[in-house]
Each structure stands twice: as structure tokens, then as C-alpha cells.
Design a binder for these strands. Structure first.
Lengths: 146, 146
DNA sequence: CTAAAACCTATGACCAACTCACAGGTCAAA
DNA sequence: TTTGACCTGTGAGTTGGTCATAGGTTTTAG
């Protein structure tokens, strides 16, 4: 398979195939006649694996490591599980943060809507943000509480 | 105030202050004697506003626009509300996506734990990811369903 | 048979929002 | 006076790609 064929087969941009090749995730063979890269079914498997792993939050170095270990006949299992669990914790932390953010945004929005309306006075909105009491802000950073 | 003083007052990296200055969010006055930038209380207000807005998901160009309009005596209100609502929808979409991801990860992890354990066979994990049926993947991208 | 379209190659720039490193200038305290 | 903490601007690195460019190849149509 040539670059575009592989890319189409996996539903990605050809540049992504070239990029992953440069990054060592794919191992094509070069045709000395025309300098073209030649990919096989194994590369397609690797590419699909890589894309799925990306959607799960694995980084490219992590994916490369997994693929390399699989090549070496080592079981990538313990490492994968480790990274996986780590990533799950991260996802849960992100969810919590976003939910808190959402709550704060909705309460701000309702404060907005309770206003005389029209164009409530431009400063009001800025003051809303300015005096936003952000729980995720670092404590003791010189902010005046007045 | 000098760079570090302003940075400390807002709890940010001095490089961030310099960066925001280059980006036009802060308007210091330059001392011709030593070429130092001099920031005032208004800059501190702008910087704090910028940081809070960032945490709400506003981009630097958006923040600059808001600050510029406020300078021009225009009410930034309708624009701010617009961007804000847009951002809220985005946050909610992100939450949903992450929750779905979390569900899929947890079910994969339990499939993991139900295994004979030890080192279950390296290929099993990869197959788990490989055959992951990802609902967020684009449909009809050449993937074989077999 | 030839010309154009569609592909291939490598390299480098660009995105966001910073952060860090570097080299050289300035200023305060010991 | 010298050390250390600060200031300056510039440029590079981060992540995971995407896009542009310039030049070579292959395929397809006329």
C-alpha cells in the first residue's frame, strides 16, 4: 500500500501517516526505484491501534512504546494497564473540573439574565468576571478579597 | 510596578506578564532611563481579568477584544455573553464525551481484571484496544467489521 | 505519445498559550 | 564593589498534527 491507500483505509490524513512514520509508529519498506514508502497489512493494524489509543488519551510516545514492546515479544500488558489506569484517573479529574466550571458558568449566566436587560451596562459583565470567586485559582496569590 | 511585582501580585509567571504585554493585553509605560516596563493598578486589574477569563475558556484574542472594547467605552456585553454561551455549550459537550470515554474505559478495565491474570498474554490487551468499538470514530472509514 | 492530473518525496512553518534558556544590561544590598 | 536578583529581547520547545512548497513519479485521458 502507498501512503494515500493506507490513509484512506484507516480514515486519516495522508500527512498523519507520514507523521506517524517519522515518529516510528509505522515501519514501511522503501522502494529503491522511486523512493516511495510501502506499507503492509501490519502497518494498517498498527495505525488503527494507534488511532484508537489516541482516542483513549495515550500519547504518541506511549503508543510507540507499546508497539515496540509487542515487537520484542514482550508483553506490553503491565505497562498498558498502568498507563491506562493513570489515564482513567485523569479523565475523572477532568470531568469533575468541567462539571464545577459548568456550575459556575450557569450561575453567572443566570445572574446575567436577572439583569434589567437591554444592554445591562458593559461594566457589569466585566465586574461579574472580575469578581468571580474562582475555587480553582491558586490560594494566597496577592488577590485582594475586598 | 515592575514585571515581577505585577506577576507576584496576580500569581502568575513573569514570562506570562511579558507574553501578555507582547500580545497587547497589558499596556505598560516604558522608562526611557533603563528601558524597563512600568505597570499600574489598571494593568493588574486587566491581568486578573485575563486570567479569570482564561479559566472560563476565553481565548487571548477574545480577551483582548473585550479589553479593547471596554477601553473604547463600548459595552463588551453582547459579545461576552455570546462567547460565554458558546463556551458553555462546548463545556457540556466535553463533559458528555469524557463521561462516555470513562464508561468505556471502566468496562475495558473490568474485562482486564476478569482475566486469568499473572501476565494474561500480551496480545489480549492489544486486541482489547484493537477491537475497541469506538462510537466517536468516524463511520465508514474503511474499517472491517468482521 | 504526450500532457495533465494525481500521486509521491522531504522540509519547514503554523496552531495555542505559554515556559524556559540565553546573552547582555541595570540596580539594590552587603 | 561585587554579588545576586532583577530587567531586556529573541528564539526555541511543548503536542499532534495540518498545510505549503518545490520537485520527482506514475497513471490516466485524449
Amino acid at each position: 500500500m502507498k501512503v494515500k491507500e493506507l490513509a484512506d483505509a484507516a480514515g486519516v490524513n495522508p500527512d498523519t501517516v507520514r507523521f506517524y512514520t517519522r515518529e516510528g509508529l509505522l515501519r514501511p519498506v522503501r522502494n529503491p526505484d522511486n523512493n516511495y514508502q510501502h506499507y503492509d497489512a501490519e502497518d494498517l493494524r498498527r495505525l488503527r491501534f494507534a488511532r484508537k489509543s489516541r482516542r483513549l488519551g495515550f500519547s504518541l510516545p506511549e503508543i510507540r512504546q507499546i508497539l515496540e514492546r509487542a515487537d520484542d515479544q514482550h508483553s506490553p500488558c503491565p505497562m498498558v494497564r498502568d498507563v491506562f489506569e493513570h489515564r482513567l484517573a485523569e479523565v475523572e479529574r477532568e470531568i469533575t473540573e468541567l462539571q464545577e466550571l459548568r456550575t459556575r458558568m450557569i450561575s453567572a449566566l443566570s445572574a446575567w439574565q436577572d439583569m434589567p436587560d437591554g444592554t445591562p451596562d458593559g461594566h457589569t459583565i466585566c465586574r461579574l468576571i472580575e469578581h468571580w470567586d474562582d475555587p480553582s485559582a491558586p490560594p494566597c496569590c496577592g488577590e485582594q478579597t475586598s
